[in-house]
Simulated assay, not measured.
Amino acid sequence: MRRTFLATIAAATLSTAALAQQGHSHGDQGPHGGKMQDVVGVHAELLTAERTLTVHLYDEAGKPVPSTGYTASALVGSGQARQVVQLAPGAENTMTGTAASPVARGTSVTLQIKNPTGRSGQARF
């Protein structure tokens, strides 16, 4: 019984550590209706439309964070087909990129962001 309890505690600790490294789900939709994830100290809202990927950046209070100085890429995958999309800073708090093929609804997207200080992180959508 004691071993089972210790194993459960160890599993919970490892799961929590893994979530902390990957970012955790914000649990809300962003102002533009996209999913939100915490990554590198900002809230990132991902939107896809046909081949265009757009990421909006916000602070803890929900205010836009200028995208200047940020770099980002997205690994877009569905089955065996995977593509990397580079995102460039755009107007205000947005970063955009264009995929080679349309991004289907429900496609897995892993976003990698590097902030202006050089710290990087990733989030899965």
Rank of each mutant, 00 (worst) to 15 (best):
Arg82His: 13
Thr48Met: 05
Val65Arg: 00
Gln80Thr: 15
Pro64Met: 04
Tyr70Ala: 08
Lys63His: 13
Pro31Trp: 10
Asp59His: 05
Ala7Phe: 08
Gly34Ala: 06
Ala18Gln: 08
Pro102Asn: 06
Gly41Arg: 01
Glu60Thr: 10
Thr16His: 12
Gly69Asn: 04
Thr94Trp: 05
Ala12Ile: 07
Ala100Asp: 13
Gly106Tyr: 03
Gly30Val: 02
Gly30Phe: 05
Gln83Trp: 00
His56Met: 09
Gly33Phe: 02
Thr16Ser: 14
Asp28Asn: 12
Leu46Phe: 06
His43Asn: 09
Val76Cys: 01
Ser73Asn: 13
Val39Ser: 01
Thr48Arg: 05
Gly118Arg: 02
Val39Thr: 04
Asn93Phe: 01
Met1Asn: 14
Asn115Leu: 07
Thr117Ala: 11
Val65Asn: 02
Gln29Tyr: 15
Ser101Asp: 12
Thr4Gln: 15
Arg124Ser: 11
Thr48Glu: 04
Ala74Ser: 08
Met1Lys: 11
Asp28His: 14
Ser78Arg: 15
Pro31Lys: 11
Thr96Gln: 08
Ala11Asn: 07
Ala49His: 15
Lys114Pro: 09
Gln86Tyr: 08
Arg51Gly: 05
Gly77Glu: 11
Gly90Val: 04
Ala20Val: 13
Gly79Trp: 06
Glu45Thr: 02
Thr107Ser: 07
Leu46Lys: 02
Ser73Lys: 10
Leu6Gln: 10
Gln83Phe: 03
Ser67Pro: 01
Gln29Asp: 14
Thr54Pro: 05
Ala7Gly: 06
Gln122Glu: 11
Thr117Trp: 12
Ile9Pro: 08
Lys63Ala: 10
Gln86Arg: 14
Gly62Ser: 01
Gly118Ser: 04
Gly118Asn: 02
Ala44Ile: 02
Leu57Ala: 04
Gly23Met: 00
Ala12Thr: 08
Arg3Gly: 14
Pro102Asp: 06
Glu92Ile: 11
Leu57Ile: 02
Ile113Asp: 06
Val85Glu: 00
Gly23Thr: 01
Thr110Asp: 10
Leu57His: 01
Ser15Asp: 09
Gly97Asp: 00
Leu14Arg: 09
Ala11Ser: 09
Val65Phe: 02
Ser101Leu: 10
Ala104Trp: 08
Gly34His: 05
Pro64Gln: 04
His26Ser: 12
Gly90His: 05
Met1His: 15
Tyr58Ala: 08
Tyr58Trp: 07
Val84Met: 13
Gly23Val: 00
Gly33Lys: 01
Asp28Glu: 13
Leu53Val: 03
Gly30His: 05
Leu53Phe: 00
Arg105Ile: 15
Ser78Asn: 14
Leu57Ser: 05
Gln122Gly: 14
Pro89Ser: 03
Pro31Phe: 11
Val76Thr: 02
Gln22Tyr: 11
Thr117Met: 13
Ala91Asn: 14
Ala11Asp: 05
Ala104His: 09
Val39Tyr: 03
Leu111His: 03
Gly106Leu: 09
Thr16Met: 11
Arg119His: 14
Val103Trp: 00
His56Ser: 09
Gln83Leu: 07
Ser101Trp: 13
Pro116Glu: 07
Ala10Gly: 07
Arg2Lys: 15
Arg3Lys: 15
Pro66Tyr: 04
Gly34Thr: 02
His24Val: 15
Ala49Thr: 12
Asp59Trp: 04
Thr71Gly: 07
Thr71Asn: 08
Val109Glu: 03
Gln83Pro: 08
Pro116Arg: 06
Arg3Pro: 12
Leu46Tyr: 07
Ala72Gln: 04
Arg2Gln: 12
Ala7Ile: 10
Leu53Gln: 00
Ala11Trp: 05
Tyr70Pro: 07
